[in-house]
Amino acid sequence: MSKTEVCIESYSRHRNLKLVESEIGIPWQTVYWHLKRADIKVTGDKARYGSASDRIAIIGEQRFHQAVPIAINNNNQEYQSTIDFSVGAISIDIKTARIKRNHSGKNNKPASPRWGFCINKQLDIADFFVFYALDDNDLTHHIFLLPKEVVTTKTTISIPESMDSKWADYKIEESELLPFFKSMLTIN
Rank of each mutant, 00 (worst) to 15 (best):
R37E: 09
F64G: 00
K171S: 13
N120A: 14
I24S: 08
K3N: 15
K171E: 15
A47K: 14
K41M: 00
S175I: 10
E161M: 09
N107D: 14
D135P: 09
F129N: 08
N102Y: 12
W115G: 04
N108R: 09
V6L: 11
S183P: 06
I172E: 03
E161P: 07
D169K: 04
D138G: 07
L35K: 03
K41Y: 00
V20L: 01
T155E: 15
D136Y: 00
I157F: 06
D84W: 01
E78R: 02
I72A: 14
A89E: 14
P27T: 00
G50R: 06
V42W: 09
Q80T: 12
Q77L: 15
F85K: 12
G116K: 13
V68W: 11
V20H: 04
N75I: 02
A89T: 13
H14S: 03
T30M: 10
E173W: 04
V6I: 15
D169Y: 14
P147Q: 11
K46I: 02
W28D: 11
T152G: 13
K109N: 11
T82P: 06
H103P: 09
Q77V: 02
I157A: 05
L134Y: 04
F181H: 03
D127W: 11
M163H: 06
I59S: 05
V87N: 03
R114P: 05
Y170R: 10
A168R: 13
Y11F: 10
F85T: 12
R37C: 06
K106E: 01
L35H: 01
E9F: 09
D164I: 15
W115A: 09
D54R: 12
G116L: 11
V6P: 05
L185I: 11
I72P: 00
G88H: 00
L185K: 10
K166S: 07
G88S: 07
I143G: 08
N76S: 02
N137P: 04
D84V: 11
K109W: 00
S183M: 09
D93N: 05
V42G: 00
D127M: 11
T96E: 02
I159Q: 08
R55P: 04
I99W: 01
L139W: 10
N188S: 14
E149M: 07
Y11G: 03
L185H: 01
N120C: 11
K95I: 10
A133W: 08
S165I: 07
R101Y: 12
E5Y: 01
K95Y: 07
G50I: 09
I72N: 13
K41W: 02
A52W: 11
S22C: 07
S51P: 01
M163F: 05
T82H: 08
A111Y: 04
V130D: 08
G116D: 02
L17E: 05
F144L: 07
S51K: 11
E21V: 02
